[in-house]
């Protein structure tokens, strides 16, 4: 008894082809769509206060460390306390409606619930102070913060991205006093001494460098 039409004879081959193409497509899709450069870069969370880095760090020219004061000494580039804001805003635009959450925080003592934009996995130990001491500028990882109205993730925070720099730190190094300078470009004298700069930092490449 003939149970299948003749036209079905090609079906298994077509299914096999479709499975192959689908499998490759799936791997490709994971590779692209699930990669940090697709998932993380461009993350722009809305903050409780419409704080503008462009205005403060860019136009007003405030140094990063005015607010993120512990960045050279601690693992975390701290979020400034409300005091830091009120230091100026008790006199600058003290009545601004946009600053209402800041004044509220100041009065109640409750912290402002800033949203973290640059999120690292829990099993990764990243230390800002070490990187700044080695001469890695803010801009290398965070991009042109001084031009961002709202903070946006600029680089993919993936393991390979970290290790690329750990293996070849040269292009991301700068003099320590230029760390917060967003516009610094290496000059000839700096480039000619590159070997020396690189020899100084010796970044770890072993697992426990970042995973303890």
């Amino acid at each position: 008894m003939q149970i299948f039409p003749r036209s079905l004879n090609l079906l298994p081959l077509m299914l096999g082809g479709a499975a192959t193409v689908g499998g490759i497509g799936l791997v490709g899709a994971i590779w692209y769509y699930l990669s940090p450069s697709h998932l993380q870069v461009g993350y722009e969370p809305e903050q409780p206060v419409p704080y503008s880095h462009r205005l403060h760090a860019g136009e007003l020219g405030m140094d990063c460390r005015y607010c993120h004061s512990a960045v050279e000494r601690s693992a975390k580039a701290n979020i400034p306390p409300t005091q830091t804001c009120m230091g100026c805003h008790s006199v600058v635009h003290p009545e601004s409606a946009r600053l209402a959450p800041v004044r509220e925080s100041w009065e109640t003592g409750e912290s402002i619930a800033w949203v973290k934009a640059h999120v690292l996995p829990d099993h990764t130990y990243f230390d800002h102070s070490v990187h700044l001491a080695a001469g890695v500028g803010c801009v290398s990882c965070h991009g042109r913060i001084d031009q961002m109205e709202v903070v946006r993730v600029d680089q993919p925070i993936a393991m390979q991205w970290c290790l690329e720099c750990h293996r070849d730190p040269g292009p991301n190094l700068r003099p320590r006093d230029e760390i917060t300078n967003m516009e610094w470009e290496p000059d000839q004298a700096w480039l000619s001494n590159m070997a020396e700069h690189v020899a100084r930092v010796n970044p770890p490449e072993h697992c426990s460098g970042c995973h303890r």
Binding site: M1, Q2, P5, L8, N9, L11
Partner: peptide, 12 residues
């Protein structure tokens, strides 16, 4: 194979 249709299957 696979070849689900074959004239031989016409025979019961």
């Amino acid at each position: 194979l696979p070849r689900h249709h074959h004239p031989i299957f016409e025979s019961d």
